[in-house]
Design a binder for these strands. Sequence first.
DNA 1: ATGTCGGGATACTCCCGA
Length: 255
Amino acid sequence: MRIATYNVNGVNGRLPVLLRWLNETQPDVACLQELKAPQENFPREAIAEAGYNAVWHGQKSWNGVAILSKHDIVETGRGLPGDPTDEQSRYIEAEVKGITIGCLYLPNGNPAPGPKFDYKLQWFDRLITYADGLVKSDKPVIITGDYNVMPTEIDVYKPERWVDDALFRPETRAAFHKLLGQGWTDAVRTLYPNEVIYTFWDYFRNAYGRNAGLRIDHFLLSPQLKEKLQKAGVDKHVRGWEKTSDHAPVWIELK
DNA sequence: ATGTCGGGATACTCCCGA
């Protein structure tokens, strides 16, 4: 079973690229972030014609998350618990073939320090609280998506330039490692402990051509899924396509 | 500081967020 995550950066503007990638790689499940579309403007028909069921949580202009599945899918949650005043569409969860799949778009947090960074850390705290319940539930769970965190120095092309950025500040990395400490497995890093692997390249300054990238899209697996992890990778070539996202799709395969 | 996108507002060019 292949499960993928892809920050599309605009699901409608990106539709040809998204459909081309789905057709080429045929993931069983695809988690999408940054739909940048209100609920009613999700391209449900095109997605269905491509062979996918879908649940999604849209929002006008920004954010928005979706889970596509070739198999039966049941939505189990939308919106991250812990703050009823939070109106940003950054979390959706569903069950597919007995696996609970959380799809998240963690706040960017720049500029830092400031209110956006505060929101990022608060959102992270809520995620840590919620994920603790999931990891203790003894159910097979995946939490994947755009975490907007480079966990370690190997995940940044020039770490020294990013130490004050919201994606790499000590508070951000500490939160990610606190989350991992609950018992989650960073799937890609576990299979490739020493490889330089990026999932995002800025649109600026020919970042992709220079391979000036970041690893910020992650798969976290609960303990019982760790044993079933077989492969993982990044569809890096998709970042080189015309009219492409600034992220590349990331995927895992489970036994 | 810069750069480049998608989306949306006011609209044929700007700003925001990333």
